[in-house]
Design a binder for these strands. Structure first.
Length: 701
DNA sequence: GAGCACTGC
């Protein structure tokens, strides 16, 4: 600890922070910035007068483990002078001076105290990961330092484009602290391989027979490719001549792997045995595998993107950024000098790869963030001009405003409503928080709480199924799961949770029904948290309770569907007259279908309901609506009426601007905005082209 | 009749 690089720069760092409100600290891996920087500031008096140092982390585990280590280093119990606060878990006390937290928690806190008066310093750690929350925080901090002259902000990062961030913070100083990484030699390929699985296979075998001991980490895009490579590599390795090289084990590593299989990569390799870890980008930042000396990088990653024009999500294979490529290579140099084999040429690295990963704020729906910002009541600000490090496109902001208007969170002038204020208190996407409020009116809050909790952790629910396990969908495999009375997936989710409640939240029950126990436990926690927040305004019961009689239950479902229709006003679809295709209701109607995994049932003539709401539009082989629920025409009518009267320019405050020519002609924002949209367009088309090349190659035999 | 990168309040 004593020879951590950052301690040698202590005076310089403290001096810079003393004299500037915002400081950027570039700390490479192993510099000790996350653990040491807060301790340095603590030693130098930034925690006097009972003020705290806030340190945000992008992940829960990071907040916990770093807090734990710092408390050990200071020799104090965790939760005493050093604590952490993450969702569902607050380990801080009156004595806490250094507080680690996830960035989302700090955003929640600034909702109740926008000035963050508790803190003398806010350290935004790992800012280069650019989560949606981080980008909102960066914008808020830029405003806050202007009104709170005593506040210090430290933005730390491994590889951030420091000129851009420094310019964002009006030319603030940048301090660089070297890391403790060993050199990693990079090897390129002349050409992109035809098949990534086979190229990785050859490369891995070549390393195995020619290179000295050391584990191999292979970066692939997804579960399917990983399983293929694991199978092929295991087979080839076991068929190698005995005694010709050392033993080998091949381990898969990805998010949907069962936890007990995931931890295998943390066990050290048996003696004289090389480990091959075939991983998604989970091993890029989230998990650190010890013993890795060789890295094979396929150059691609799967990324979820949102198209504000169509309201559709897609999961695309895209080229990684230079930042990601370097992060992957760095995984080889943690314990000794390493080697990284890139399955692309140096030209591709230099010319084709983007410098930075496209930040999440440019590829997500912004409804939640916009509502959050509106609820802060920032003076003299209109949302289109909020100062983001990477401003989202106009389309993206207008898409968010339109949705917020249709669900009554903002009025026709774009001002936040009292409904919107209550919604912003709930840690949910706006469609679900609006559903809760409507359900409260209709007397079915308890059921809506369950549905919202189930949906907000949906991906964590289904037990992982690989292709090899078969193609059965959940209800076919586990036929005793309820089917939502044919009304749709929301009702099914409600019924599943109620059934789990009836067996007293038995964990074995989850496994027997193909549900992840951890995911279901998470649902319970979310539900509890939502119930607690809703308690203040709740009109009815918050308990998970089965209605006594059949008619009562059916009435409950009807009320719930009505509430869903209010919350999902921006996610409505109308069936075609003669077949089961749907058209989304809105400005840009999309032709979509109910996803085949839905439990929604057709009537006696084989027709699906005329109107339904959907949770998400996903473009896979075709555009699908995922998680649908049948609704009735009378409930839809108010939405249609509202749509007719919608004036997007009023919502986005354009009328305000036209009344203030000086303001609207303020050129400062215009060039940066349009410039950004151009680069994003470029990035988008390049990503698309590269993806098509990738897919074309993949399909060849 | 189809397909699951990774986080987080």
């Amino acid at each position: 600890m004593v020879n951590l690089p950052i301690l040698q720069h202590e005076d310089k760092i403290v001096d810079t922070i003393d004299r500037n409100q915002v400081t950027i600290v570039i700390g490479e891996t192993g510099s000790g910035k996350s653990t040491q920087l807060p301790q340095i500031l603590h030693r130098r008096g930034y925690t006097s007068h009972r003020r705290l140092i806030a340190v945000t982390q992008p992940r829960r585990v990071a907040a916990v483990t770093v807090a734990r280590r710092v408390s050990q280093e200071l020799g104090v119990p965790l939760g005493d002078r050093v604590g952490y606060s993450i969702r569902f878990e607050d380990r801080t006390s009156e004595k806490t001076l250094i507080k680690y937290m996830t960035d989302g928690v700090l955003l929640r806190e600034s909702l109740s105290d926008p000035e963050l008066r508790e803190y003398s310093v806010v350290v935004l750690d790992e800012a280069h990961e650019r989560s949606l929350n981080m980008d909102v925080l960066l914008g808020l901090m830029k405003r806050l330092v202007k009104t709170r002259k005593d506040l210090k902000v430290v933005v730390t990062s491994a590889t951030l484009d420091c000129e851009k961030v420094s310019a964002f913070f009006d030319g603030c100083p940048v301090v660089t602290v070297p890391g403790k990484l060993f050199p990693v030699e990079i090897f390129y390929r002349e050409e992109r391989p035809r098949s990534y699985v086979d190229a990785c296979l050859e490369e891995a075998l070549r390393i195995h027979v020619s290179q000295p001991e050391g584990d191999v980490l292979i970066f692939m895009t997804g579960q399917e490719d990983i399983e293929k490579l694991v199978a092929k590599l295991s087979e080839r390795v076991s068929s190698l001549e005995e005694g010709s090289c050392m033993d080998a084990v091949v381990l898969p590593l990805h998010g949907s792997l069962m936890p007990e299989l995931q931890v295998r990569v943390f066990a050290p390799a048996p003696p004289n045995c090389r480990r091959f870890i075939v991983s998604t980008n989970i091993a890029e930042t989230s998990l650190t595998v010890d013993g890795v000396v060789y890295v094979i990088d396929c150059g691609y990653v799967k990324q979820r993107q949102y198209q504000p024009i169509t309201g559709m999500y897609s999961l695309d294979v895209v080229p990684i950024s230079k930042v990601q490529a370097n992060q992957r290579a760095g995984r080889a140099g943690r314990t000794r000098p390493g080697k990284c084999y890139r399955l692309y040429s140096e030209d591709v690295y230099r010319e084709d790869l983007l410098d930075e990963t496209v930040p999440e704020i440019l590829r997500s729906s912004l409804a939640g963030s916009v509502l959050y910002l509106k609820s802060l009541d920032l003076p003299d600000i209109d949302i289109l001009e909020f100062d983001f490090l990477d401003p989202p496109s106009l389309e993206s902001l207008e898409d968010a405003l339109k949705q917020l208007y249709l669900i009554d969170a903002i009025d026709e002038n774009g001002l936040i409503t009292s409904v919107g204020r209550t919604m912003a208190q709930l840690p949910l996407e706006p469609s679900l928080s609006r559903t809760l409020l409507a359900a409260n009116e209709y007397g079915c809050l308890s059921q809506a709480l369950t549905v919202a909790a189930m949906l907000s952790s949906e991906t964590a629910l289904l037990a992982s199924r690989s292709k090899i396990d078969g193609n059965k969908r959940m209800r076919e495999t586990f036929s005793d799961l309820p089917g939502g009375d044919g009304l749709g997936d929301h009702i099914q989710l409600l019924q599943i949770f109620e059934q789990w409640d009836r067996v007293d939240y038995d964990m074995d029950w989850c496994k027997e029904h193909g549900l992840k126990a951890r995911g279901m436990k998470f649902v319970r926690d979310v539900r509890r948290q939502l119930a607690q927040i809703m308690q203040k305004v709740a009109r009815g019961s918050l308990d998970v309770r089965d209605q006594k009689g059949l008619t009562e239950r059916q009435q409950g479902y009807k009320n719930l569907r009505k509430a869903l229709c209010v919350g999902y006003a921006n996610q409505l679809a109308e069936r075609m007259i003669h077949h089961n295709g749907y058209r989304t209701i809105g400005f840009k109607a999309q032709l979509v279908q109910v996803h085949p995994s839905s439990v929604l049932e057709a009537d006696g003539e084989g027709l699906l309901p005329t109107y339904l709401v959907y949770h998400e539009l996903v473009a896979t082989t075709r555009p699908f609506m995922q998680h649908v629920c049948a609704v009735k025409m009378p409930w839809v009518m108010p939405v249609l009426k509202k749509l007719e009267g919608l004036d997007i320019s009023k919502l986005s405050g354009q009328s305000y601007k036209s009344n203030n020519t000086a303001h609207s002609n303020d050129a400062s924002n215009v060039p940066s905005n349009s410039e950004n949209m151009k680069t994003l367009d470029d990035a988008g088309s390049r990503i698309k082209a590269a993806r098509e090349r990738f897919l074309a190659r993949k399909k060849k035999p």
